[in-house]
Amino acid sequence: MNSNTFSKPLQINRINVKDNFWKKMMELARTHVIPYQWEALNDRIEGAEPSYCMQNFKIAAGMMEGEFKGFVFQDSDFAKWIEAVGYSLMWNKDEGLEKIADGAIDIVCAAQQPDGYLDTYYIINGLDKRWTNLRDNHELYCLGHLIEGAVAYYEATGKDKLLNAIVKYVDYVDTIFGPEDGKLHGYPGHEVIELALIKLYKIKKDKKYLNLAKYFTDERGKSPLYFEEEGKKYNNKFWWEDSYFKYQYYQAGKPVKEQEVAEGHAVRAVYLYSGMADVARETNDDELLEACKRLWSNMTKKQMYITGGIGSSQYGEAFTCDYDLPNDTIYAETCASIGLVFFARRMLEIEPKSQYADIMEKALYNGIISGMSIDGTKFFLCKSIRGSSRGF
């Protein structure tokens, strides 16, 4: 690996965007989307399906009575919101928004357990059940997004309350997972923690976080397959057992360095590939980088629409096989386009090749901004003619 070709982007607060198109989009996010989504997180949008996100944190913190509601990954809605707030504050200081964010952080941190654990689904439903379904229940996924949100808010404001809470959580996770005897040899069913840990490593300069990211990457798909063992132990139903995908739905059917084609759930895949690229760069792992290049080539040359859309199948929100790109049932989830940009950006920072920049631009214009309405109050999950939308 040639470190002489490495690059990194400028800090966001050093960039002044004056372009009429993007400036308008950024202002829309700052003045409409972020405030609207805060109302959605608190279930104050008339006619919209409740989020239950902040309610769950309040229940977990003992601020109110109730039961967990929403999806198992509901905590990630706060995490993504606070990350957006952080990026917005890097461009535009806003004391009012910062005050709201600080209050939200107080609620979230109040739910943290003495050992550092912070996931409302298991805090409310029983801590004895945590880490019993890594494949499907999104604990490490939610943590990954919390890391990203905490890092962004710290970089924007210098305030470290959320960052310190998440560091405590990650330190606890490091005692649970790893290659050592006595630890769980598991990894997340929905990736994102891999790339998030690299962000934390760059802030804290502690190699523990780099090593944990490398572990989650390297351990994935090794034999005996963790998800199989977990399923037997806890009797977790494997939804994809009789499917085309099997464990490659989670990109876990074989070690990542042996994977040659993009397979399974498209969002999970590109989040994983982004983390792989980060780990390859930080650890100078040529073999891992070669796997990233193979996966990039297959995905962009044989499994991507001309618009930059990826993940053609509504069945599993997934990649299927080479050149299976139907026009009438295209799925092409917005989140997959976001992950594609993440992956492209990381590959571009490793080697300055136009293919990465070109596809990053294509996905940004066609796949990402099309996921939000012009007024910033409606959000679209996919591009299928039968595609879905949701209020947040």
Rank of each mutant, 00 (worst) to 15 (best):
E290F: 05
K254T: 14
Q11G: 04
Q55P: 01
K301L: 04
S297E: 04
F73E: 13
F6N: 09
F238Q: 15
L118C: 05
W38E: 08
E219N: 14
E49T: 12
L288F: 03
V270H: 05
I306Y: 09
A318M: 04
P114A: 08
P188V: 08
L28N: 12
N56Q: 03
C53E: 01
N366E: 06
K18P: 00
Y234I: 14
E333F: 01
R44W: 12
A110S: 14
G149M: 06
A165T: 15
G144H: 14
G86N: 03
K232F: 06
K293H: 15
A79G: 06
E333A: 03
S7D: 01
K214Q: 13
Q248T: 02
S384G: 11
K222D: 12
V167Y: 04
A344P: 10
L348Q: 02
R14C: 08
M64L: 01
E282S: 01
F380S: 13
N137R: 07
L146A: 10
T132F: 10
Y52S: 00
S373E: 05
A29F: 06
V256S: 06
A101G: 14
E49C: 07
A269K: 07
L41D: 01
C53W: 00
E155K: 12
V72P: 14
W239G: 15
K233H: 08
V33M: 09
I59S: 01
H265D: 13
Y315H: 11
I338H: 01
V279T: 02
D94C: 11
E46N: 05
